[in-house]
């Protein structure tokens, strides 16, 4: 709503609300980082920090798609299921064909490249289903994507028989998640950076990016001004499913196993990091930068909680409190600015 109006305002506010929120959340990230470095022993350590970056790769990759959809005012809860679908299907396709082995140990024996392409196509199919129900049948996006989440995780569970596909994977299967370039920076991080750059270009420099904001700000106005709203939203759902598939492949590669429980709760985590970074649920406001900042704030907090020796369950409490605090703080800051 506010984003482009502000740039028309001359003297009193030089930066837009979006830049303002981005900068404030970056500030929060910096404070959290410094605080963690001071309080948590061994936090400020090159290995720990590069670990921290590597751990955020998957959630940021799928966060890109979720952010774009949120900007248009739509939810995608199916990403968690698609992650497990991507993980299991990619494993199944390239597991070696072994006659006589159990069902779980024998796959289709495809080449890794071919397997990845087919996996991503399968994941994009879920995106097509999402788009069909939301754009054509016009049902609520939360409800339908929760359905496709259960559906895609269900397919993954059936292929992996409720467990995982781990034997007979080709050696290149684990490269994306485990081959490190510098420190613990692996290929996954490079994929993440590459996708982020593309996303930033799309967001800021293309007409498509601008149209996304307009749809979120006012869908009716967008439609009346000649934007093919339905086509853009379908495209975004398919992209989001594609990115979730990439995240699934990366994750399976990191564990070197196609496990059907991978990505459990990621649909919620993706929502948490995007909102934490400042993207508005109401649509029309947000940025991929928000998702990255949100992911790192949450990542630093979780790591610190862990390193300070609290139980892992403490992370869930932290997550809950942080999200409420972040939303209230952002609203407060924006309200102040308006005055």
């Amino acid at each position: 709503m506010q984003m482009k109006v502000d740039s028309c305002k001359p003297a009193e506010s030089k930066i837009s609300n979006l830049t303002f929120i981005n900068l404030s959340m970056l500030g929060v990230l910096a404070v959290v980082f410094v605080a963690a470095s001071l309080i948590v022993p061994r936090f400020f350590d090159i290995n720990n920090i590069s670990n921290l970056i590597a751990q955020q790769a998957e959630i940021i990759i799928l966060g890109i798609g979720v952010t774009f959809l949120l900007i248009t005012g739509h939810f995608d809860m199916s990403v968690g299921g698609i992650v497990s679908l991507g993980a299991v299907v990619s494993a199944y396709l390239c597991q070696a064909k072994t006659a006589g082995a159990s069902d779980l140990a024998s796959g289709l024996g495809m080449g890794y490249g071919k397997a990845i392409i087919i996996t991503l196509l399968c994941c994009m199919l879920i995106g097509v289903i999402n788009a069909f129900f939301i754009v054509k049948v016009k049902v609520n996006s939360v409800v339908v994507t929760l359905g496709t989440m259960a559906f895609s995780r269900g397919v993954a569970m059936i292929i992996a028989k409720g467990a995982q596909r781990i034997t007979g994977l080709p050696p290149e299967y684990k490269q994306i998640g485990q081959y490190t370039v510098i420190g613990t920076i692996n290929i996954a991080v490079i994929i993440m950076i590459f996708l982020l750059i593309i996303a930033l270009i799309v967001e800021n420099k293309t007409a498509f990016g601008r149209r996304i904001y307009l749809i979120g700000a006012n869908q009716v106005a967008a439609k009346l001004s000649g934007i093919k709203v339905e086509r853009e939203i379908s495209l975004l759902y398919i992209t989001s499913a594609f990115l979730a598939g990439v995240a699934g492949i990366v994750m399976a590669s990191r564990f070197n196993a196609g496990n059907c429980t991978l990505g459990t709760g990621y649909e919620f985590d993706a929502l948490v990091i995007t909102v934490l970074g400042g993207t508005s649920i109401a649509g029309g406001f947000g940025s991929v930068v928000c998702a990255v900042v949100g992911a790192f704030i949450l990542g630093i907090l979780s790591t610190s909680v862990n390193m300070l020796g609290f139980q892992p369950a403490m992370q869930m409490l932290v997550k809950g409190f942080v999200i409420i605090a972040a939303i209230l703080a952002q609203r407060f800051a924006l309200d102040k600015r308006k005055v």
């Binding site: 299921g81 259960a150 559906f151 895609s152 995780r153 269900g154 569970m157 059936i158 028989k161």
Partner: peptide, 14 residues
């Protein structure tokens, strides 16, 4: 097998 449940639930919701 119980691992069919998720798929069935998803389809029922849709």
């Amino acid at each position: 097998a119980p691992y069919w449940q998720s798929l069935v639930k998803g389809m029922v919701l849709i």
